[in-house]
Write a protein that binds this DNA or RNA. Structure first.
Lengths: 182, 182
DNA sequence: CATTCCTTTCAATAATAACTGAAAAGACTA
DNA sequence: TAGTCTTTTCAGTTATTATTGAAAGGAATG
């Protein structure tokens, strides 16, 4: 079981990535599986992953499927081997892009819908409210509106960053800094 | 028990905010308490919150404390009342700023430390590795370096956005879009 | 088409995270 | 300082989420 310096460095990375995932609402194990595939860069089969992370076959299978669905890893095959292998061949930027797009797709729409729905419900019924509630309704509406505007602004920015691609990201970073400076 | 349109809109908002929090690694209840204080804008005491969200005193107390620690709400008092009240008087932008700064403070440092530590461990011991492991060590090091660079770039951007303040955010958004366009 | 090898599924179980409620601590009042 | 009101703490409980392992389902092989 001689773990060399490379193994140790990779294990440290995998553990930390797992913890990070956990604080960001991604299951620790899913993040670890991803980290392992990312940092080794090798195609690994289910058994490799089971052994390296000490998890069951079912668990490995579930998490691998999710990672494939997210587009963070892909299935592959080794010639002369019947088993399925998995590989993470995205670079850091592509990983970031994939995760950001996916989360945006799943979450931005729903929250905007809810905010709009709250506003339209309020708009229809505000006249029916007791006098002293009307001011509150107006204040509440303003908060909802502000939040919608903010989400929209951020969304435009994220969109620009994502579509800039990794080549332009440095330039973009510089442009942002100089815009803010003055 | 007559919930009017304002109550309903607020409840919808609170529920959705809670769900959002849950998918981002913040406990549903903590997010709901915050949402309630934010959307009403009123100072509320522990009992108000307990009743409105149907949670226990202990739970309310714990979550309120956390929110105060995050700087998202603050304690206040109503004249002639011994109880403690809580209020959320940040606007959307300030909220975003607070949350971003806090998460950055807690998470960016540690992840950078881990990455650097992995690299320096590798650097010291790579010569001792078996020949065919050396190439892997170099590849691994490159990934770690790429990730460090990426985190750094992103960190600079986030820093610029945060220090731009809400007045400049629209301008910034425009600057980003136009930089990317060509 | 039977065998072998591999993957997926899912009910049962384990682990983790969140919540409760009552007791202790703290704070203000007279 | 005793009495009253309020907040905090935390051991015990409940709820939620993650994991296991074995059985069922597929797919390639001879």
């Amino acid at each position: 079981m001689g773990a060399d310096a490379l193994d140790r460095a990779q294990q440290t990375f995998v553990r930390r990535w797992g913890e990070m995932g956990a604080t960001w609402g991604i299951s620790r194990t899913m993040a670890e599986v991803h980290a392992l595939l990312f940092i080794t860069g090798d195609p690994l089969c289910t058994d490799d992953i089971m052994h390296m992370l000490q998890i069951s076959r079912g668990n490995a299978s579930m998490n691998l499927r999710q990672l494939v669905n997210w587009g963070l890893i892909r299935r592959t095959h080794l010639r002369g081997d019947r088993k399925e292998y998995f590989i993470s061949d995205l670079d850091t930027w592509q990983m970031f892009e994939t995760i950001t797009r996916e989360r945006r797709r799943r979450e931005v729409g729903p929250i905007i819908d809810t905010l709009k729905q709250c506003r339209s419900d309020l708009a229809g019924d505000t006249p029916k409210l007791a006098k002293e509630r009307q001011q509150k309704a107006v204040d509440c509406d303003k908060k909802l509106q502000d939040m919608l505007d903010f989400i929209n602004t951020l969304d435009v920015m994220v969109d620009a960053v994502l579509s800039s691609g990794s080549e332009q990201i440095g330039m973009l970073s510089a442009a942002i800094s100089s815009t803010v400076k003055r």
